[in-house]
Design a binder for these strands. Sequence first.
DNA 1: CTGTTAGCGCGTTCAA
DNA 2: TTGAACGCGCTAACAG
Lengths: 336, 336
Amino acid sequence: MPRPPKGVTIADVAARAGVSLSTVSRALNGNPTVDPTLVAKVQDAAAALDYTASAVARSLVLGRTQTVAVVVPDLGNPTFQAILRGLSRAAAADDYHVLVADSAESVDEERVLATATRRRTDGVILCAPRLPQDELDRLVGGLQPVVLINRASGDVPSVRADYGSALTAELTHLHALGHRRIVFLAGAPGSVANAARLEAIEAFRIAHPDTDVTEIPCGVDFEAGAAAAPAVLESDATAALAFNDLVAMGLLSALQASGCRVPDDLSVAGFDGIPFAQYTTPPLTTSAVPAAELGAQAWSRMRELLESAEPGHPLTLLPELTVRGSTGPAAGARVS
Amino acid sequence: MPRPPKGVTIADVAARAGVSLSTVSRALNGNPTVDPTLVAKVQDAAAALDYTASAVARSLVLGRTQTVAVVVPDLGNPTFQAILRGLSRAAAADDYHVLVADSAESVDEERVLATATRRRTDGVILCAPRLPQDELDRLVGGLQPVVLINRASGDVPSVRADYGSALTAELTHLHALGHRRIVFLAGAPGSVANAARLEAIEAFRIAHPDTDVTEIPCGVDFEAGAAAAPAVLESDATAALAFNDLVAMGLLSALQASGCRVPDDLSVAGFDGIPFAQYTTPPLTTSAVPAAELGAQAWSRMRELLESAEPGHPLTLLPELTVRGSTGPAAGARVS
DNA sequence: CTGTTAGCGCGTTCAA
DNA sequence: TTGAACGCGCTAACAG
């Protein structure tokens, strides 16, 4: 077997085929103004030399890399994974590549990675829940084309899930079950995802003066949820609403470990609708965020931007309330 | 605020600083043979113009992209996510970028993506469980530098989890609990991951003639596991060993839905040790594959390759048996 | 229809 | 120490 020829260039192909560089370029790029005979010759030569045009050189001359960057807060979180997956597959279908960057839930990294990855790609899709709004506004200017996920900034194309409405739906669900004292396990204080939820809670409080919704600072992962269990038990709440499913799972587990029965003693609801929420015991009531769809739509926006077509209008998807066994009638309501 | 200057080139900086292109290049790259005065001038000019050298142009002239490709079978699978996460963070720490490609569990895609992504990166880290060995052997030649995850080929650097030993440990665990009739829910027929498990099973059969281990064709996800439940129930097995945790979770759920008690009626064990396995009911006995570590080590190998240092010797990590509530004494054994 | 020429934006020789 | 010129590998404009 011939050694895989390193550094075969277009000149080598041209020499072997007995034509000029441009003819090789044209032939290989399907330019119709080339004699079919020569096309065949060129293709043969290219095949024989195992030639493929240097992507970097093409990128330089064409001014585009066929690659987009995606910045996510945590590759370990199923929600962002689903977004990335949907995005990656959609982009691949359009022959685009995806450069990923994990900001490790850090504001600094979100900022740095966005600009760093942008320099070697044609655009960046930003999922940066922690970045303060003013910084985001400032950042996106120098990043274009940009698509935002779960954020907005000026008229930058964006796709988002309506966290507020979804949380309201969950609260309403709990209220209908008779819950009047509810605790909310909050996520990262600075994040917009958390802010959206808090806003919905505030509106709910006003609409339902009979119901007491209190916040407990918590976090975004298993450990945070488990660590919050004592605080939840100490409160006199009959239902706990977690920032996301990971928190809910951690909480659920810790609660049950200390003898608390769910949903008999306490109802627990999550958020995001990760696949695993279906397999806890009891299965988790949650709001199903169509994350993969969000990713695919984000790509769609980016594609339009890259083709300098009108980007689709901002998209807002409504997560679907998914009622499962972890929520039930309020303990108090049952007694009365 | 000045418009973010598009297309500021090194010439613009040179003009503004009143020096030549080469001086700008040298100054910005920290070449010590430049007059400190000029360095300052250049830096000022660059800052004023918000200049950053084109990554593509640098890549072309330097012959390296500071980017590696990672091909994974499914971005939706927690195990590969963990690998990607560990890899991505390790690479980022060394100022490298990561291009991801999701082969969607397809052999064709594994093959195509590997070469396609290689062309725009400095190397590829391949996690391709489906690719037949001969194809893999042929492929890696033209891909170098390459690092393999959970595969081997010639003396290509690789990192892997010892699936065989881990499965043996699980079988031994079940055997010790008195199980003598065990079903194995097999994964993708062609995959090496599956082959490694089957091999371990065969060895176990020989070592334990008293135990009957039968395979049931299954799959690699929730649905496959759930769909296999009837077959598992129809068998007279007292324990089921799933290809991975996803399958185990699907199975667990379907079994319980049809009234089967785990582990009293049937023990269930998974594989991979995904975080969620801890939150099923009962919690899942499994083998914890250090996936993030695998990813980090894969990067480490790649880094050594890129620095043309001696790549570390092939690494094999042993997954740790994690016994939880889903496995218990065999129903039969308990009666006797 | 084909070949020659000129860049894409940068790093790096080679002289000065 | 600095600048001018060359080349990375390729595509596109311009002639022929």
